[in-house]
Write a protein that binds this DNA or RNA. Structure first.
Lengths: 352, 352
DNA sequence: TTGTATGCGTTATCAT
DNA sequence: ATGATAACGCATACAA
């Protein structure tokens, strides 16, 4: 494989000149430039990135550390990161499924010398010390951190506000017994959404009741199971806030199977606004999370972080607006199907 | 930031010894080992990957080039790659959204010196020459290639066979006028699935009719639009094969809105078996694609490729089995909902 | 068992 | 405008 030396030899110039024309740094005569370009083309010379970044101390790549890769959320985060990085001609080095702090640390170590900065989303608690060690090595932007600690930039989703808005919506519709299907314990998002749920109830003067809080783990089947428990409760709640859409899907499915009509007999609201939320029956009212933007903003923060204005670490919070569709029965049900379709609501079952 | 020299100085040994203990290469006295380990820990020394791979000529990372990152398919491919790579302690350098050959090439160039091999999925035609140039630089495994050319290893999905099986299923159910909603022109998968559709019709002695082939682009809305055209046709087809699940979802939605009952008035079969396929109403009969495995196998091929047995480039084809649910009406409809749920079919609407 | 010295492929700093 | 040459941080062949 040809190196810069081979190109120099063929073009009959020094490696310094080759480097100059290829990087457009420093002055070069037209003649030399021509010869170098031709030699590089003939040899199909590809510069070695490792060597280059050893001297320049820049890698043109962004490291990304995620707890997992499963599902639409992470997929969209990555897509946002990739697009933003691409625009800046940066590469993306991804590593995921890190259970504990130790794994996060070793993954970060492996990136030393290979990335210019790290985008880190950690579901684990007590990562603070680890983050401090990582920050010594390269700049870090936190995605959805547990807290704003650390003095390093971060982007997060307004989980609390979104959840509160969702439950307030149910309250405004007249519901009094509102259940929640919680996310996995220890999960940051799950915790914030639970907090939002409780806050909304509290603001309405209603005491949050443990009996109305059902366990879940963000999977469809856990929503399914929760439905059965909820239906057993007496008095039966008239509305459910699922801490994410997957569980809401499970709920909807189980309710349909049990012959419970949504939203007439039970209102359901989710969180995430997955692509399919508008395609289920009835179209799911849910809280929109812009995962793509989360990744995109993280990259932007990283870039501005590098500049001088990074003195003050910025903390962005992406809004999580409620998207009202039909699973809470908030709208008049008399509208014809055509009108609803044009509004982007695509429930499956014939309306009758 | 500490280098190997700093560790050597603090431990009062040479850098060679430090390297030896840290990489467990060559003999080292217990005393020296102790001192080095302690020094490295005290300085929190993280070896520089670029420098290391410059000498070893190994990067411990896999390059991945994809045409896009959108949707469940790519997301799962990446997840499969990531897990398999992780098991081998490899990192993953991802780059996507490459429209044309030129972009693929420049992305690959940027990876020179940064990856030990490249996993390449290109939707573009005429990439053959580019692939040859890339292969000079590092080993390549093709994902879902247009053809088995190139003599380099590849993994692909049995698109043709899957599509044929899907359409044969419809034929076996007695359908004669079977429409297809095609994928985007130029797309490899779309092409193969169309071929499978035509082959099934041909095998059944039916002439493939252009009037039954409707355009689509793999999006929900294109399935939606196709439905309207299909319903306008006279005689109206009694079954539709959607070249992917997203379009099938669009179809289902539009059919429901038009008051057409599925599967009684119109059978629908999809392709991909997205997570939500079993949750729509009726649960979608579709062809299963194991995207996770696609990525996983690609990594495995890359690894064995490196070894001596790589002399013969292997070509794996992942099966794409038909998953029969309810959108084609293949099963007796008398079964109670509970039985169906236990079989993993979770349609939303009450059955009635 | 240990240290010295060379090379990996670039970029960058000098002279010229 | 150009060409030696010194880093960059590490691994390793070789000498001791």
């Amino acid at each position: 494989l040809p190196t810069i030396h081979d190109v120099a030899r063929l073009a009959d110039v020094s490696i310094a000149t080759v480097s100059r024309v290829l990087n457009d740094s420093g002055p070069v005569s037209d003649e030399a430039q021509r010869r170098v370009l031709e030699a590089a083309a003939r040899l199909d010379y590809w510069p070695n990135g490792a060597a280059r970044s050893l001297t320049t101390r820049r890698t043109q790549t962004l490291g990304v550390l995620l707890p997992d890769l499963y599902g639409e959320f992470f997929s969209e985060v990555i897509r946002g990161i990739d697009h933003a990085a691409r625009r800046e001609r940066l590469q993306v080095l991804i590593s995921s499924s890190h259970a504990d702090t130790e794994e996060v640390l070793s993954a970060a170590r492996a990136m030393r010398g290979r990335v210019d900065g790290l985008l880190l989303m950690s579901s684990d608690e007590g990562t603070d010390e680890a983050i401090r060690r990582i920050r010594r090595v390269f700049p870090v932007v936190l995605l959805n951190p547990r807290s704003e600690l650390d003095g390093c930039a971060s982007v997060s989703v307004a989980n609390f506000e979104g959840a509160r808005a969702a439950v307030e919506h149910l309250i405004a519709l007249g519901h009094r017994d509102i259940a929640i299907v919680k996310g996995p314990a220890g999960n940051v998002d799950a915790g914030e959404r639970l907090r939002g749920y409780r806050a909304a109830l509290g603001d309405a003067g209603r005491e949050p009741a443990p009996a109305l809080e059902f366990p879940g783990d963000f999977t469809e089947s856990s929503g399914d199971r929760a439905a059965e428990e909820i239906l057993r409760r007496d008095p039966r709640p008239t509305a459910v806030f699922a801490a994410n859409d997957s569980m809401a899907i499970g709920l909807l499915s189980a309710l349909a199977a049990a012959g419970i009509e949504v939203p007439r007999e039970m209102a359901v609201v989710g969180f995430d606004d997955l692509a399919f939320a508008r395609y289920v029956n009835p179209p799911l009212t849910t809280v929109h999370v812009d995962a793509y933007r989360l990744g995109e903003r993280a990259v932007r923060l990283m870039l501005s972080h590098g500049r001088a204005d990074g003195a003050v670490a910025r903390h962005e919070v992406l809004p999580a607006p409620l998207v009202v569709r039909r699973s809470c029965g908030s709208e008049a049900s008399g509208r014809p199907a055509r009108a609803r379709r044009e509004a982007g609501e695509h429930g499956f079952a014939p309306t009758r």
